[in-house]
Simulated scan of single mutants.
Amino acid sequence: MRVFVAGGSGVLGRRLVPQLVARGHQVTATTTTTAKLDLLARIGAQGTVLDGLDAAAVGEAVAAARPDVVVHQMTAISPAHAGKPDIKHPDRWFAKTNRLRTEGTDHLLAAAEAAGVPVVAQGYASWNGIRQGGWVKTEEDPLDLLPGTAANVGLKAMAHVEDVVGRHGGAVMRYGAFYGPGATDDQVELVRRRQYPLIGRGQGYSSWIHLDDAASATVIAIEQKARGVFNIVDDDPAPANQWLPHLAASAGAKPPMRIPVWLGRLLAGDQAVVMMTEGRGFSNDKAKRELGWEPRYPSWRQGFEEGLA
């Protein structure tokens, strides 16, 4: 197949493109800077520089690639694009990413519709399940958009991706929290400095996914022309009071400090408090059943240890 990967030089794109190439697919991958064209060439893709917010440029790039499928992995979360991570103000930190997930998604869908091809897009399913009922949610459960908080604009942008890609007949891969090469460097550094505390009792659940497993699930969705929403997470949704101490131990750091909820909200904002105290993780049963996908890293426990050893 001819696969157009928008955002091919990103943290997931760099793991996805080689898997596609290894499966015999011809990949055109985009980046925002000429400095990364050599990287894309080394991993087997035809690189092209593209601003995902330029509708005309997106349309021209997709048309020129003549793809069989368009894959949306565009974000602007790296420090080069977004500056220093700011979990207290995700509306600021993710400002350009939110535009890529709204305007950028619309541009890619228009180009895909003009080419008559499906879309596979990046979604999110880590701690953001609806805060009612059990601790582990399926694709049938609503997402929590945290109305009235700084996180709401970003979570609404993700809901927009699911809505418009679903109406297009494409697939949305709701990835858990990424870990793997280059994905958790900032978090690990904070953990080693003991600047990533547990908030409250730390009973809020999260789901994780290794980058290579996220990529392998995406390859399957591309090849199967999948439709619908899939939670791409590992088998082990767990509370923060389990995964954060394990991350610290795997990184050779001291155990995380604990702080009360009021202080966590003051220092880190509403999103961090919800994630650590009330977050809901996700089930991967649908992805396993309908895609035939199995994660190589069934638990973050193994993955953290191997990646940080």
Rank of each mutant, 00 (worst) to 15 (best):
R2L: 01
V3K: 12
V5W: 03
S9Y: 14
L12K: 04
V17R: 06
Q19N: 01
Q26W: 02
T28Q: 04
R42M: 05
G44W: 02
A45M: 13
L50R: 04
L50V: 10
D54T: 15
A55E: 15
A65P: 04
A65Y: 04
P67G: 07
A76E: 07
H81G: 01
A82K: 07
I87C: 00
I87P: 04
T97R: 03
R101L: 14
A110Y: 08
E113D: 15
E113N: 15
P118T: 04
Q122G: 10
G123W: 10
A125L: 12
V136D: 02
D141H: 13
P142G: 02
P147Y: 10
P147T: 04
N152T: 12
V153Q: 07
L155R: 06
K156T: 11
A157C: 05
H160A: 03
V164D: 09
G170I: 05
G170E: 05
A171E: 06
V172C: 05
M173Y: 12
F178D: 11
G180A: 09
P181F: 03
D185W: 03
D186H: 11
Q187T: 08
E189T: 09
L190M: 07
R193S: 07
R194V: 09
Q195T: 00
G200Y: 05
Q203R: 14
W208R: 10
I209H: 13
E223Q: 14
K225G: 11
K225C: 00
A226K: 02
R227M: 05
F230C: 14
A238P: 00
A240P: 01
L247N: 02
A248D: 01
S250H: 06
G252V: 12
K254M: 13
V261Q: 09
A268S: 01
M276P: 00
M276C: 00
T277K: 03
T277L: 01
G281S: 05
G281A: 03
G281E: 08
N284H: 14
D285P: 04
E290L: 13
P295C: 09
P295L: 10
S299A: 12
R301Q: 13
E305Y: 11
